[in-house]
Design a protein around this nucleic acid. Structure first.
Lengths: 197, 197
DNA sequence: ATAGTGATTGACTCGTCAGTCAGGCACTCC
DNA sequence: GGAGTGCCTGACTGACGAGTCAATCACTAT
């Protein structure tokens, strides 16, 4: 069956997510992935040229979806603040839906300046740029102050999101649904409203 | 000479900073550190029980200084906003003074949820707590809004700083002095003032 | 001198793992 | 039924690198 073949590949990718999340990319063995997938060691190399290629595939698959979501928000006719909210919402929901995958992407790629972060820098930058464009539009429309550089603000926004995800990842708790919703609101409130009162 | 002994230990630590920054902790070999230090392989194990212990030492040495600086700012009678500024200033200056060391701390420890971040979680948390206390004081004094949770705001603040450092680390440029000063101001402006205009 | 102490050396050991490969299995088409 | 094709298997290899250790050196105290 041809669908069986595709299934095995998926099986390996999904197993890799769990293993990378649990043990980390550097610490896990390829045999751990094969075992987790319930598949022979060699089969991993039938579908992927190397261990790295598995991580690359996982990252690119998911990041593309995220870029699309960001660009969709940016292209909508929502108010700038609501566009940011939509992005925060999408990323938080990504974590909610598949925390292991988001953990792998954040810990092993996005924050790994030495290894894969370097390789995928361009993809990562593309996300920043889209967010910066939203801020710039808001500034042009006069709803955001122009004192802060748009790129810098985008960094602050994305940095805060990643910080929240990291906090969740470290904590290893089961996050309750209302915390997800609360954080979405707090996040935008923090970036837009600031601390001064 | 007894000072020679201490010198060799320092020599190894300083070499390790350069090697970790250049190649990353996981990718480098202990022999790389020994070579960089101009010292025999075995001597590394005379001063340190393991490769990890070198990284631990580097992190703890520096983090202690940082915690002290944060607590000093928090204990000062500066306005809350100026206390935050002092902290931002200290961390930015740390990067300015020794970018390699800060790179190692951020990339290999602070952002590494699987390996060393886990081990040093307590130390890292201590920094967050001190910053959160500053925000809470500001809120109690009425100069900061109470809409945002103090811990969350501290996360945003530290997250933004780390994001800026990461940006510098990735970029591999020589950062001009005025950019350091500009960022210090922009950072506090962003967190306190927010985007809304 | 001689012995003792701690620094220093680098060749060696030993476990670990990414990646290979020779073959087995299932399914199809003549 | 036999030959071809692609999926699948897991034992094996070869490299690599952390940590060990026995020997040497430098310096001090007796």
């Amino acid at each position: 069956m041809t669908s069986g073949a595709a299934d095995k590949r998926r099986l390996i990718l999904d197993a890799a997510v769990r293993v990378f999340a649990r043990q980390g990319f550097h610490t896990c063995r390829v045999s751990d992935i094969a075992d987790e997938a319930g598949v022979a060691y060699g089969l991993v190399y039938h579908y992927f040229p190397s261990k790295e290629a598995i991580l690359d595939t996982l990252f690119l698959e998911r990041w593309e979806v995220m870029l699309a979501a960001i660009d969709e928000a940016a292209a909508s006719d929502l108010a700038p603040r609501e566009q940011l909210r939509a992005i925060a919402s999408f990323i938080v929901d990504s974590y909610r839906h598949d925390p292991d995958l988001m953990k792998v992407i954040v810990v092993e790629v996005t924050r790994a300046a030495n290894t894969f972060g370097r390789t995928h820098l361009e993809q990562i930058m593309r996300a920043y740029e889209s967010m910066a464009r939203i801020v710039a539009q808001g500034q042009a429309a006069g709803v955001f102050r122009s004192e802060v550089d748009a790129t810098f603000a985008a960094q602050a926004f994305y940095g805060l999101i990643e910080q929240v995800l990291t906090q969740w990842i470290f904590s290893e708790r089961e996050i309750p649904a209302e915390e997800f919703e609360h954080v979405k609101a707090e996040l935008v409130e923090m970036i837009c409203g600031g601390l001064d009162g």
